[in-house]
Protein backbone atom coordinates (compact mmCIF):
# COMPACT_ATOMS: atom_id res chain seq x y z
CA UNK A 1 0.00 0.00 0.00
CA UNK A 2 1.26 3.46 -0.86
CA UNK A 3 0.00 6.56 0.95
CA UNK A 4 0.46 10.07 -0.42
CA UNK A 5 0.88 12.99 1.97
CA UNK A 6 -0.10 16.37 0.53
CA UNK A 7 2.50 19.10 1.07
CA UNK A 8 1.20 22.67 1.01
CA UNK A 9 3.84 25.37 1.45
CA UNK A 10 2.56 25.92 5.00
CA UNK A 11 2.14 22.28 6.01
CA UNK A 12 3.82 21.56 9.35
CA UNK A 13 3.01 17.94 10.16
CA UNK A 14 3.67 16.55 6.69
CA UNK A 15 6.97 15.01 7.78
CA UNK A 16 5.32 13.44 10.82
CA UNK A 17 2.49 12.05 8.67
CA UNK A 18 5.02 10.61 6.21
CA UNK A 19 6.85 8.85 9.05
CA UNK A 20 3.60 7.46 10.48
CA UNK A 21 2.42 6.30 7.04
CA UNK A 22 5.79 4.67 6.43
CA UNK A 23 5.20 2.45 9.47
CA UNK A 24 2.21 0.79 7.76
CA UNK A 25 3.24 1.05 4.12
CA UNK A 26 5.06 3.17 1.60
CA UNK A 27 4.69 6.92 1.78
CA UNK A 28 5.42 9.79 -0.55
CA UNK A 29 4.87 13.53 -0.87
CA UNK A 30 2.17 14.98 -3.12
CA UNK A 31 3.09 18.58 -4.05
CA UNK A 32 0.24 21.06 -3.74
CA UNK A 33 0.85 22.55 -7.16
CA UNK A 34 0.67 19.22 -9.01
CA UNK A 35 -2.48 17.76 -10.54
CA UNK A 36 -1.33 14.22 -9.97
CA UNK A 37 -1.83 11.73 -7.15
CA UNK A 38 0.91 9.49 -8.55
CA UNK A 39 -1.23 6.38 -8.24
CA UNK A 40 -1.30 6.27 -4.44
CA UNK A 41 -3.76 4.01 -2.63
CA UNK A 42 -4.73 6.58 -0.06
CA UNK A 43 -4.23 10.30 0.62
CA UNK A 44 -3.38 12.09 3.86
CA UNK A 45 -4.00 15.84 4.10
CA UNK A 46 -1.74 16.77 7.03
CA UNK A 47 -1.75 19.41 9.73
CA UNK A 48 -0.26 22.87 9.50
CA UNK A 49 -1.22 26.17 7.97
CA UNK A 50 -1.64 25.27 4.27
CA UNK A 51 -1.36 28.77 2.76
CA UNK A 52 -0.86 30.69 5.98
CA UNK A 53 -4.54 30.42 6.89
CA UNK A 54 -4.74 34.11 7.70
CA UNK A 55 -8.21 33.95 6.12
CA UNK A 56 -10.67 31.27 7.26
CA UNK A 57 -8.61 28.13 7.77
CA UNK A 58 -8.48 25.91 4.71
CA UNK A 59 -10.42 28.40 2.58
CA UNK A 60 -7.57 28.84 0.08
CA UNK A 61 -6.22 25.30 0.22
CA UNK A 62 -9.42 23.79 -1.14
CA UNK A 63 -8.62 25.53 -4.45
CA UNK A 64 -5.10 24.09 -4.66
CA UNK A 65 -4.40 22.16 -7.89
CA UNK A 66 -3.81 18.94 -5.93
CA UNK A 67 -7.18 19.26 -4.19
CA UNK A 68 -9.08 18.82 -7.46
CA UNK A 69 -7.42 15.44 -7.77
CA UNK A 70 -8.09 14.61 -4.12
CA UNK A 71 -11.78 15.41 -4.64
CA UNK A 72 -11.95 13.18 -7.72
CA UNK A 73 -10.11 10.42 -5.88
CA UNK A 74 -12.55 10.71 -2.96
CA UNK A 75 -15.60 10.62 -5.25
CA UNK A 76 -14.21 7.43 -6.76
CA UNK A 77 -14.07 5.84 -3.32
CA UNK A 78 -10.37 6.38 -2.52
CA UNK A 79 -9.37 6.67 1.13
CA UNK A 80 -8.70 10.23 2.25
CA UNK A 81 -7.59 11.12 5.79
CA UNK A 82 -7.55 14.76 6.92
CA UNK A 83 -5.69 15.58 10.12
CA UNK A 84 -6.24 18.92 11.88
CA UNK A 85 -5.64 21.45 9.08
CA UNK A 86 -6.39 18.58 6.69
CA UNK A 87 -9.76 18.11 8.40
CA UNK A 88 -10.43 21.84 8.02
CA UNK A 89 -9.50 21.69 4.33
CA UNK A 90 -11.74 18.66 3.69
CA UNK A 91 -14.66 20.46 5.34
CA UNK A 92 -14.00 23.55 3.20
CA UNK A 93 -13.86 21.31 0.12
CA UNK A 94 -17.28 19.90 0.98
CA UNK A 95 -15.90 16.38 1.30
CA UNK A 96 -16.93 16.27 4.96
CA UNK A 97 -19.95 17.75 6.71
CA UNK A 98 -19.74 20.56 9.23
CA UNK A 99 -17.05 23.13 9.96
CA UNK A 100 -14.27 23.86 12.44
CA UNK A 101 -14.63 27.04 14.48
CA UNK A 102 -12.18 28.81 16.81
CA UNK A 103 -11.73 27.01 20.12
CA UNK A 104 -14.05 27.99 22.92
CA UNK A 105 -11.04 29.37 24.83
CA UNK A 106 -9.90 31.31 21.71
CA UNK A 107 -6.34 30.13 22.32
CA UNK A 108 -4.09 27.53 20.76
CA UNK A 109 -4.13 24.35 22.82
CA UNK A 110 -1.53 21.58 22.69
CA UNK A 111 -2.51 18.73 24.99
CA UNK A 112 -2.67 14.97 25.18
CA UNK A 113 -6.38 14.00 25.17
CA UNK A 114 -8.31 10.77 25.50
CA UNK A 115 -10.62 9.70 22.72
CA UNK A 116 -13.44 7.20 22.57
CA UNK A 117 -13.65 5.22 19.35
CA UNK A 118 -17.35 5.41 18.50
CA UNK A 119 -17.38 3.21 15.40
CA UNK A 120 -14.98 0.34 14.78
CA UNK A 121 -16.51 -0.92 11.55
CA UNK A 122 -15.06 1.76 9.27
CA UNK A 123 -12.11 1.90 6.92
CA UNK A 124 -10.29 4.17 9.39
CA UNK A 125 -11.10 2.48 12.71
CA UNK A 126 -11.49 -1.22 11.88
CA UNK A 127 -8.12 -1.98 13.47
CA UNK A 128 -8.85 0.04 16.62
CA UNK A 129 -9.56 -1.87 19.83
CA UNK A 130 -13.30 -1.73 20.56
CA UNK A 131 -14.17 0.00 23.79
CA UNK A 132 -10.64 1.20 24.50
CA UNK A 133 -9.58 4.77 24.88
CA UNK A 134 -6.93 6.29 22.66
CA UNK A 135 -4.44 8.82 24.04
CA UNK A 136 -3.57 11.18 21.19
CA UNK A 137 -2.47 14.85 21.26
CA UNK A 138 -4.41 17.80 19.89
CA UNK A 139 -2.83 21.10 18.87
CA UNK A 140 -4.92 23.77 17.22
CA UNK A 141 -6.65 27.13 17.54
CA UNK A 142 -9.56 26.30 15.26
CA UNK A 143 -10.82 22.87 16.20
CA UNK A 144 -14.34 23.28 17.58
CA UNK A 145 -16.46 21.00 15.44
CA UNK A 146 -19.75 22.56 14.48
CA UNK A 147 -22.79 21.61 12.41
CA UNK A 148 -26.47 22.51 12.73
CA UNK A 149 -28.34 20.34 15.22
CA UNK A 150 -30.27 18.50 12.54
CA UNK A 151 -27.09 17.67 10.68
CA UNK A 152 -25.45 16.47 13.89
CA UNK A 153 -28.45 14.19 14.52
CA UNK A 154 -28.21 12.83 11.02
CA UNK A 155 -24.43 12.41 11.30
CA UNK A 156 -24.75 10.44 14.51
CA UNK A 157 -27.67 8.39 13.14
CA UNK A 158 -25.64 7.22 10.16
CA UNK A 159 -22.61 6.41 12.26
CA UNK A 160 -20.57 9.29 10.87
CA UNK A 161 -18.98 10.23 14.21
CA UNK A 162 -15.94 7.99 14.52
CA UNK A 163 -14.13 9.61 17.44
CA UNK A 164 -15.32 11.58 20.42
CA UNK A 165 -13.33 13.31 23.15
CA UNK A 166 -13.71 11.28 26.33
CA UNK A 167 -15.66 13.00 29.10
CA UNK A 168 -13.56 15.83 30.52
CA UNK A 169 -11.21 15.85 27.52
CA UNK A 170 -13.00 18.12 25.04
CA UNK A 171 -10.27 20.73 24.45
CA UNK A 172 -12.17 23.14 22.24
CA UNK A 173 -15.90 23.00 22.98
CA UNK A 174 -16.67 20.77 19.99
CA UNK A 175 -20.36 20.02 19.48
CA UNK A 176 -21.25 16.72 21.12
CA UNK A 177 -17.52 16.26 21.87
CA UNK A 178 -16.95 15.28 18.25
CA UNK A 179 -13.27 14.77 17.43
CA UNK A 180 -13.53 13.05 14.04
CA UNK A 181 -16.18 12.43 11.38
CA UNK A 182 -16.42 10.52 8.11
CA UNK A 183 -18.47 11.09 4.98
CA UNK A 184 -21.53 9.08 4.09
CA UNK A 185 -19.59 6.70 1.86
CA UNK A 186 -17.14 6.08 4.67
CA UNK A 187 -14.01 6.71 2.61
CA UNK A 188 -13.18 10.27 3.77
CA UNK A 189 -12.28 10.86 7.41
CA UNK A 190 -11.24 14.01 9.21
CA UNK A 191 -10.12 14.45 12.81
CA UNK A 192 -8.63 17.23 14.92
CA UNK A 193 -6.32 15.05 17.08
CA UNK A 194 -2.97 14.09 15.58
CA UNK A 195 -2.62 10.30 15.27
CA UNK A 196 0.71 10.80 13.46
CA UNK A 197 2.04 12.14 16.78
CA UNK A 198 0.99 8.96 18.56
CA UNK A 199 2.99 6.25 16.79
CA UNK A 200 6.04 5.96 19.07
CA UNK A 201 6.08 5.36 22.83
CA UNK A 202 9.14 7.59 23.13
CA UNK A 203 7.34 10.70 21.90
CA UNK A 204 3.99 10.05 23.56
CA UNK A 205 1.92 6.98 22.78
CA UNK A 206 1.27 4.45 20.02
CA UNK A 207 -2.48 4.83 20.13
CA UNK A 208 -2.67 6.60 16.78
CA UNK A 209 -1.19 3.66 14.90
CA UNK A 210 -4.48 1.78 14.74
CA UNK A 211 -5.95 4.45 12.46
CA UNK A 212 -3.15 4.04 9.92
CA UNK A 213 -3.23 0.26 10.33
CA UNK A 214 -6.96 0.33 9.55
CA UNK A 215 -6.25 2.15 6.30
CA UNK A 216 -3.67 -0.44 5.39
CA UNK A 217 -6.11 -3.26 6.12
CA UNK A 218 -8.78 -1.77 3.89
CA UNK A 219 -6.51 -0.53 1.12
CA UNK A 220 -4.60 -3.80 1.26
CA UNK A 221 -7.83 -5.75 0.84
CA UNK A 222 -8.76 -3.59 -2.16
CA UNK A 223 -5.29 -4.14 -3.65
CA UNK A 224 -5.55 -7.89 -3.12
CA UNK A 225 -9.00 -8.05 -4.72
Amino acid sequence: MRLGVVRFPGSCDDGDALRAAAIVGDAEVLWHGDRDLRGVDGVIVPGGFSYGDYLRVGAIARFAPIMGEVERFARDGGLVLGICNGFQVLCEAGLLPGALLPNEGLRFVCRQVELDVVETSTAFTCDCPAGERLSIPVKHTTGRYFAPEAQLDELEARGGVLLRYAPGHNPNGAARSIAGVCNEAGNVFGLMPHPEHAVDPLTGSTDGLCLFASMRKVAGAVLAA
Partner: peptide, 14 residues
Protein backbone atom coordinates in the same frame (compact mmCIF):
# COMPACT_ATOMS: atom_id res chain seq x y z
CA UNK B 1 1.40 29.02 29.01
CA UNK B 2 3.08 25.98 27.49
CA UNK B 3 -0.20 24.49 26.30
CA UNK B 4 -0.39 27.45 23.94
CA UNK B 5 2.73 26.18 22.17
CA UNK B 6 3.02 23.24 19.82
CA UNK B 7 5.70 21.26 21.64
CA UNK B 8 5.57 18.08 19.55
CA UNK B 9 5.69 18.89 15.83
CA UNK B 10 8.64 17.24 14.02
CA UNK B 11 8.27 14.15 16.26
CA UNK B 12 11.49 14.72 18.17
CA UNK B 13 10.18 15.76 21.57
CA UNK B 14 10.73 12.96 24.04
Amino acid sequence: VFEQYDSIVQSRTI
